[in-house]
Amino acid sequence: MKLFNFSQSRSLWMMHFCTGCGAMEMPPTMTSRFDMERFGIIPMATPRQSDLLLITGYLTIKTLKRVVRAYEQMPTPRYVLGFGSCTINGGMYWDSYNVIKKLELYIPVDIYINGCMPRPEAIIDAFLKLREMIAKGEANAWKKYIENYEWYKKNQSEVFDVEKWSIKNEK
């Protein structure tokens, strides 16, 4: 198990789900200036292949449906990173009718990075923090999703029609 945790921490494949304004911060972290690849983090095309889901900005209900679908398509163990204040408490869209105020209600989040769009250094710092948590085996937010699956589904159903939108395959 320890070897797996070590290897999982060293090679985190990121599902680059660019929602909201945080997406602009990703290119500098990826390219030569801040080079996140040296920590073994490379952007992957499909949720099937990735372990890390980045929510980089405010989430409207419409994108939440896609995010939940992508999250469920990722193999476990999977980790979620919430960027910016919009994911924490809705940020400057706190009073908007269709923006999600607390990301936690819908999908479990491992690490939040505050700041109205954190700079690349903060993102790298978050990655390193996540690495240690995985290495020590503490980052198991994904278990919460499986254990209280109904609670999450109830919260989601308040916002959109889960029945129509969820994937029906034998879990």
Partner: peptide, 8 residues
Amino acid sequence: DNYTATEW
């Protein structure tokens, strides 16, 4: 349950 860029 296929990856279709998470489109429904």
